[in-house]
């Protein structure tokens, strides 16, 4: 009998009332800590459950029935694909921020003063970018390198992070000499004092419009609408500003 109770308790970890599960792109990993603290201050009754990873990974998971209420992508195409798959309501689509790309290096001797073109220096042996197959920041990084006609030259030096946060970790540990990451990551309190960064000109890659959707599952959760409204609030905007996100159109 006691064993059965323990077993039941172990299975009871699923989402309960008053909880909202948020799947968010990895560029938000630090920004979200502040956003969610502010949200929970405004709505103390709602308990947020946060998962971060690559947008493409979350899209695949949601397609396979992952229990997320809200999906914050690093682009617009994945949320649109969720809607197209009938797994989210079109009206819930909300553009919350525009991301920016930077070249980042942490080694004292690594020179990235000329931005993207520095990456072709022989001294830079490994360049980390997010996986362009399923991470929007990886796609943008590849687009920027192609725009400056550097891709073919630097491709042999490129290593791929599973998402943009792992990409930053490769550079932070020094295993990669430099790389292309989200400005939001290097502006975070955790990484602000680590290394140097140079912004990549916005015209060299497709605009990183980031959108959120409420999933079919999240529609029944009253907290979902509150959360989307919060993303557009002045308080949230102030936090997005601090992490270098531009205002969406």
């Amino acid at each position: 009998m006691r064993l059965l109770l323990i077993l039941l308790a172990a299975f009871a970890g699923d989402l309960r009332a008053g909880e909202l599960s948020v799947a968010a792109a990895s560029d938000l990993v630090y920004c979200l800590e502040e956003l969610h603290a502010a949200f929970e201050k405004e709505h103390p009754a709602i308990d947020l459950k946060t998962s971060t990873g690559s947008s493409g990974n979350f899209f695949a998971q949601i397609k396979n029935g992952a229990p997320f209420d809200v999906f914050l992508s690093a682009d617009v195409s994945y949320p649109e694909a969720v809607i197209k798959a009938g797994l989210a309501d079109e009206e819930s689509l909300s553009r919350y921020a525009v991301g920016r790309l930077v070249v980042w290096a942490t080694g004292e001797k690594t020179d990235i003063s000329s931005g993207l073109t520095s990456l072709s220096n022989a001294a830079i042996k490994k360049i980390a970018i997010a996986n362009p197959d399923h991470a929007p920041y990886g796609r943008a990084a590849k687009a920027a390198l192609q725009y400056f006609k550097m891709w073919d030259q630097v491709e042999p030096k490129v290593v791929y992070g599973e998402n943009i946060a792992q990409t930053a970790q490769f550079i932070e540990t020094g295993n990669a000499d430099a790389g292309i990451v989200a400005l939001a990551l290097v502006l975070s309190p955790k990484l602000a004092k680590v290394g140097r960064w140079v912004e990549i000109p916005g015209e060299s890659y497709p605009r990183l419009e980031q959108a959120a959707v409420v999933t079919r599952r999240g529609q029944d959760n009253p907290a979902s609408a509150l959360y989307i409204a919060f993303l557009r609030s002045a308080k949230a905007r102030e936090i997005f500003d601090r992490f270098g996100f531009r205002l969406p159109q």
């Binding site: 042996k125 490994k126 290593v159 490769f170 540990t173 020094g174 295993n175 990669a176």
Partner: peptide, 13 residues
């Protein structure tokens, strides 16, 4: 550092 000194690249990747 020793590996990089020896081979010129990191062991990771």
């Amino acid at each position: 550092a020793a590996w990089v000194g020896l081979t010129g690249h990191t062991l990771a990747f």
